[in-house]
Amino acid sequence: MVFVEGSKESIEGDLSVFDEFSVWSGLSISSEKSTIFKAGISEVERSRILMNFPFAEGDLPVRYLGLPLMTQAMRRQDFLPLLERIRGCISTWTKLKSTGAKMAWKDICKTNQEGGLGIRALKEVNLVYGLKLIWRMLTGNSLWGKWIKTNFLKKKNFWEVNGNAQGCSWIWRNMLNLRDVANTST
């Protein structure tokens, strides 16, 4: 879906961009499948556009992705059909009977050769990325690390800063909780 100013020149400009995209990618728009919708243009401009471009003419309002495209602001009743469809989908999710997991998470985290899916355990991934954040902060090679030192540490030592900081993000608290692990792994 492309929105343009309602003039022949504006449409020509957009089509030239599509032509250039076609040269680069090999993909082109299908004029037969394209529809032009107009709002707020004169009858003369409408005629100029339809005479120069091989697009079908559509009328507003039209539905796109479940919602009507309109020339005025949408009201509550315009959203209701979509909301009801969403509610219907959600209600079917809650009515499904759970039979339990078909496979234990520890088995899913095994390698493919061991019969698992090769997915890494989330606790392990969280630990690794937490330690990586500590390393980035301490080496000072990242803008983020410099920001943390300036705003959170404020010239204090990371290893000695108070771990009970209220109002801090969960990432920062996680990093503080990983200090013992990081200290032993160095």
Rank of each mutant, 00 (worst) to 15 (best):
V4N: 06
F3C: 13
I119D: 00
G13A: 08
E114C: 06
S22I: 00
L15P: 01
A56L: 12
Q113H: 08
I90H: 15
Q113E: 14
W135S: 10
L80C: 11
S28R: 06
W159L: 09
A56W: 01
E12N: 07
S16E: 08
C89I: 07
V17N: 04
F37C: 03
L138A: 03
K97N: 15
G6D: 08
L82E: 12
R63T: 14
R46D: 13
N151A: 12
A104Q: 13
Q166P: 01
I36L: 07
G118H: 03
A39Y: 12
N157M: 09
T35I: 12
Q77T: 15
G167P: 06
F79G: 08
R136I: 02
V181S: 14
L27S: 06
P68Q: 06
E114Y: 02
L143F: 14
S7W: 09
T111Q: 07
N112Y: 10
E160Y: 02
R87Y: 15
K154W: 02
R179D: 07
L176S: 07
A73G: 15
I86D: 07
M137L: 13
A73V: 15
S30L: 09
P81E: 09
I171F: 12
T184M: 12
T35S: 07
R179A: 07
E12D: 10
V4H: 02
Q72G: 11
D78A: 08
S34M: 11
S30R: 01
I41H: 01
T139M: 11
V62G: 04
S34H: 05
T92S: 12
K95N: 15
R85M: 09
N174P: 00
L138P: 03
S30T: 08
E12P: 00
G58D: 00
G140R: 02
G40I: 01
R85D: 13
A56H: 10
S98W: 14
D180M: 13
M137S: 05
L127C: 15
V62P: 00
E20W: 10
S30E: 10
M70Q: 14
I11Y: 02
S31L: 05
L80G: 02
W135N: 04
G100Q: 04
E160F: 03
W105F: 08
C168L: 10
D59G: 06
A182C: 11
S30Y: 11
E45N: 00
F158I: 12
M137G: 01
R173G: 04
W105H: 04
L122K: 04
N164E: 07
A73Y: 15
L117C: 10
I119M: 02
I134S: 05
M74Y: 11
R120G: 04
T111C: 08
F158D: 03
S47N: 12
T186K: 12
G163Y: 10
E32G: 10
A121I: 01
N126F: 05
I134H: 09
A101G: 13
E57H: 08
C109E: 04
I41V: 14
F79A: 14
G118N: 00
E45S: 01
E20L: 11
G88T: 14
D78G: 03
G88F: 07
I41P: 00
S16G: 03
K154Y: 00
E57A: 12
S30F: 06
V62Q: 06
N141V: 00
R179F: 08
F53C: 03
N151T: 11
F18Q: 03
G66M: 11
I41S: 04
